[in-house]
Simulated assay, not measured.
Amino acid sequence: MSSLNPTLGALLRGLRARQGWTLKEMSEKSGIPISTLSKVEHDRLTLTYDKLQQVSRRLGLRMSELFAEPAEDAVQPVTARRSLGDVSRAVRVETPNYDYYYLCTELRRKRMIPVLTKIRAKSVEQFGDLVHHAGEEYIYVLRGRVTVVTDHYDPVTLDEGQSIYIDSNMGHAYLAGEGCDEAEVLGVMSSADDELMRALFTIHEEQKRAEPIASAVPTKSRRKVSVI
């Protein structure tokens, strides 16, 4: 099973073996502590988004390679896979508008990308340009109120327990609804496009660069939870 669906740990372990590096040498090259690398290689720990960026930059890997196998590989049938979602092991991405917690990141070639999102932006002006990417997505409101803004429909506000399914190619934004400082949603994104994860990370980087636009976001909700 692991040969068809390698984990992040297997990918890093295989890379280290191909290069003939010891764990200490891998640590020196990636900037990740030996103890952390050992746990990742044995699938007992994952890495935060910032650490994944650091590893990919220092080792010359594309970010997408840490989440998907090379596209040229033949597609293998997927059976009996499972992954337990745990926020403490999620890959966290923090932007001015959202905090994303990517779940079940050890699985490769996922047909769905599950993500827990905390939403802070309260207006389109604060949010900036609407985002769009390949595929479709579904969100379910866990806490607070969420206003969904899209290119082709009037804004709609969802309360706890309500949900929406949209075409992700359509420009869209999720905002904290009136009277809500921070909302929390569970989302699932799906696409046949192998580059969906790369497209999402590109959006995250654009949102990070837009930090000055979102300077009015309350800081009390921006506490950072480190995975390592």
Rank of each mutant, 00 (worst) to 15 (best):
L130W: 00
L130H: 09
L130A: 10
L130K: 08
L130N: 01
L130C: 06
L130E: 05
L130P: 02
V131E: 14
V131T: 13
V131C: 11
H132A: 10
H132W: 06
H132P: 10
H133E: 01
H133K: 01
H133Q: 03
A134S: 15
A134E: 06
G135D: 11
E136Y: 05
E136I: 04
E136L: 00
E137P: 03
E137D: 11
Y138L: 14
Y138N: 08
I139T: 14
I139M: 15
I139Y: 12
Y140V: 04
Y140M: 02
Y140H: 15
Y140P: 02
Y140I: 04
V141L: 04
V141Q: 09
V141W: 09
V141A: 06
V141I: 06
L142T: 01
L142H: 13
R143K: 15
R143D: 15
R143C: 01
R143N: 14
G144K: 07
G144H: 11
R145F: 08
V146L: 11
V146M: 11
T147L: 01
T147C: 04
T147R: 10
V148G: 02
V149F: 13
V149P: 09
V149R: 10
T150W: 07
D151E: 14
H152P: 00
Y153Q: 15
Y153V: 07
Y153G: 07
Y153D: 15
Y153C: 12
D154L: 13
D154H: 03
P155I: 03
P155N: 08
P155Y: 06
V156D: 01
V156K: 10
V156H: 02
V156Q: 14
V156R: 14
V156M: 13
T157F: 03
T157R: 03
T157H: 04
T157V: 10
T157D: 07
T157Q: 08
L158N: 12
L158V: 13
L158A: 13
L158I: 09
L158K: 07
D159C: 03
E160C: 11
E160K: 15
G161L: 09
G161K: 07
G161F: 11
G161R: 07
G161C: 10
G161W: 05
Q162T: 01
Q162N: 10
Q162P: 07
S163Q: 04
S163P: 02
S163I: 09
S163M: 01
I164E: 12
I164V: 14
I164K: 11
Y165F: 15
Y165A: 06
I166A: 05
I166G: 01
I166T: 04
I166L: 15
I166Y: 12
D167G: 02
D167C: 02
D167Y: 00
D167M: 00
S168A: 15
S168R: 03
S168Q: 04
S168M: 00
N169Y: 01
